[in-house]
Design a protein around this nucleic acid. Sequence first.
DNA 1: TTGACTTATATGCGAGACACATATATACAT
DNA 2: ATGTATATATGTGTCTCGCATATAAGTCAA
Lengths: 258, 258
Amino acid sequence: MARRRTAAARRGGGGGEDRRFLAGYDPARYDRPSLTVDVALVSASDGSLHTLLVRRAEPPQRGRWALPGGFVRPEESLDAAAARVLAAKAGLRGVFLEQLYTFGEPARDPRTRVVTVGYYALVDFERFAEAAGAGADVAVGRIAVPWEGETGGPVEVAGADGAPLPLAFDHAEILGTAVKRLRGKLDYAPIGFQLLPATFTLLELQRVHETVLGRPQNKDSFRRRMLASGQLEATGTSQKDVDHRPAELYRFARRSAV
Amino acid sequence: MARRRTAAARRGGGGGEDRRFLAGYDPARYDRPSLTVDVALVSASDGSLHTLLVRRAEPPQRGRWALPGGFVRPEESLDAAAARVLAAKAGLRGVFLEQLYTFGEPARDPRTRVVTVGYYALVDFERFAEAAGAGADVAVGRIAVPWEGETGGPVEVAGADGAPLPLAFDHAEILGTAVKRLRGKLDYAPIGFQLLPATFTLLELQRVHETVLGRPQNKDSFRRRMLASGQLEATGTSQKDVDHRPAELYRFARRSAV
DNA sequence: TTGACTTATATGCGAGACACATATATACAT
DNA sequence: ATGTATATATGTGTCTCGCATATAAGTCAA
């Protein structure tokens, strides 16, 4: 603790005055809440969004299903904490990961005051399925969105057998916020690609968009819009082993030209 | 502390098992960061966005200018903390207030680990000017945005005399994030109205939009778009004491019809 | 080999949103 | 009365989008 304080004082902008003051500073004027991160890992397949959940082995709410989460460590940024949690519980690194919203209702955790910084992560379904198969007490849930458009609110999650997976704490709300954010961002940010492998056809991209938005898209408009956006790059190769005319494969073009 | 724990246990979903477990639960497995809220209060006038800043009276960074902020109290939600801070330091209640982003770089505060939940608030300039005049050590700053569109990044703030107001900690980044969010949300969310008094002309609304976006808007398109949006309601009255044809006054229509 | 079938890809057309331009209306000042 | 500044209305070409149609390129079965 003393070590950190001097290191911190060296970083301070105020020079010697700051250092003198900090020696008598008491940061614990109030009880501090615990701070965690929770990660909504989302993927798309078969017309539904899916998420990865961890079964709570300890009370409170033992047996309920929770988003992968954990405490923020003292010297770790929030982004780093979320990435660490995702690597530890799902074995995933280098995926799209972005801060979502911070949840801090006093009663959201029955133990003590816990504020959690929600994150959402996106991966293609192949990596998602691998991640879900790796760990014990991990389940894949199919997300059912009981509201339209960007209304918002909690979502429901069903297991592989179709039975509902009861979520712990306010995690249904966090997951719902992630879906809402996804829907809102899909039209203007390159996040649809994050849910697909490196190369994909336009129809696959369309299905992903339809899955996220929860409504069908016009095929031709979608096609033109995507090609005009400059975010797609033709690979020159085509699908193989399909029982119809094979489609051109595209990849996501890093927006160097925009 | 013991009192809170039992109250919390009663809220828990797991029944007796939870209660037994909680008696032995140690929430302090890690050092907990301090948790604060910081509020970027924003208004628009004269072609610029303005914000309210508080002069730091104590080290670190004494003399620098900070967003109104404070610690989150144990039994208080994040929204409530932000509203309390805004009422305490600016005397404002009932204004638009929304969570922005949470900033948690380990070195962002030289004292100790402080994670802050950023909020942004919007008021019309009349109330803003009153709020700024009320308190000592409070200044109105004019925001200069050194980037275009929704690029993002820190912003600069100048005082009434045009001299730069140096911001404390990462508050230039928080304020920049608020501007970026405003620009992104203006087109699809009814937030322009929050920067105007109860009734206003279409040109005043256009000026507000131009100020937020940092670029001129076509007058006729803007007019039609706003009237077509269903968010405006004609009051039937007009401007008075203007040296030109008076414009119709409108008010923001609560979206009950949408 | 041929034709049915499925999906991909290209093109045309009309509706609506928008930027830009022009025309008219209504206030106040001189 | 005239000028001036702004409000408000109307027209026009462009662009995007949804919808429809036409053609292409594969598989598969008879």
